[in-house]
Simulated scan of single mutants.
Amino acid sequence: MSQRTCLVVDDSTVVRKAARRIIEGFGFRVSEAKDGQEALDACRSALPEAVLLDWNMPVMDGITFLRAARAEFGPDQPRIVLCTTEAELSKILEALSAGAQEYVMKPFDADILRDKFTQAGLLEEAA
Results as ranks from 00 to 15, higher is better:
residue 20 R to K: 15
residue 20 R to C: 13
residue 20 R to I: 02
residue 20 R to W: 10
residue 21 R to V: 13
residue 21 R to L: 14
residue 21 R to Q: 12
residue 22 I to W: 11
residue 23 I to G: 05
residue 23 I to K: 03
residue 23 I to T: 13
residue 23 I to L: 09
residue 24 E to A: 05
residue 24 E to N: 08
residue 24 E to K: 08
residue 25 G to N: 01
residue 26 F to D: 06
residue 26 F to Y: 08
residue 27 G to F: 06
residue 28 F to E: 05
residue 29 R to H: 14
residue 29 R to E: 15
residue 30 V to G: 02
residue 30 V to L: 04
residue 30 V to D: 09
residue 31 S to K: 09
residue 31 S to Q: 11
residue 31 S to L: 06
residue 32 E to T: 06
residue 32 E to C: 07
residue 33 A to G: 00
residue 33 A to C: 00
residue 33 A to W: 03
residue 34 K to S: 13
residue 35 D to E: 04
residue 35 D to P: 04
residue 35 D to W: 06
residue 36 G to L: 05
residue 36 G to R: 08
residue 36 G to D: 05
residue 36 G to S: 07
residue 38 E to W: 01
residue 40 L to E: 12
residue 40 L to A: 10
residue 40 L to K: 10
residue 40 L to N: 10
residue 40 L to F: 15
residue 40 L to D: 09
residue 41 D to N: 14
residue 41 D to R: 14
residue 41 D to M: 11
residue 41 D to S: 14
residue 42 A to V: 09
residue 42 A to H: 12
residue 42 A to I: 10
residue 42 A to N: 08
residue 43 C to T: 01
residue 43 C to W: 06
residue 44 R to E: 15
residue 46 A to P: 05
residue 47 L to P: 09
residue 47 L to W: 12
residue 48 P to I: 08
residue 49 E to I: 02
residue 49 E to M: 08
residue 50 A to R: 06
residue 50 A to I: 02
residue 50 A to L: 02
residue 51 V to F: 01
residue 52 L to P: 13
residue 52 L to S: 14
residue 52 L to E: 09
residue 52 L to K: 09
residue 53 L to A: 02
residue 54 D to N: 10
residue 54 D to S: 06
residue 55 W to K: 07
residue 55 W to F: 12
residue 55 W to M: 11
residue 55 W to C: 11
residue 56 N to G: 07
residue 56 N to V: 12
residue 56 N to D: 14
residue 57 M to W: 08
residue 57 M to K: 06
residue 57 M to D: 04
residue 58 P to T: 02
residue 58 P to K: 03
residue 58 P to R: 07
residue 59 V to H: 11
residue 60 M to T: 06
residue 60 M to C: 07
residue 60 M to D: 12
residue 61 D to N: 15
residue 62 G to H: 02
residue 62 G to T: 00
residue 63 I to M: 15
residue 63 I to T: 12
residue 63 I to H: 13
residue 63 I to D: 13
residue 63 I to C: 12
residue 64 T to C: 11
residue 64 T to G: 14
residue 65 F to C: 01
residue 66 L to S: 00
residue 67 R to W: 05
residue 67 R to A: 03
residue 67 R to Y: 03
residue 67 R to M: 11
residue 67 R to P: 05
residue 68 A to C: 03
residue 68 A to Q: 12
residue 68 A to L: 02
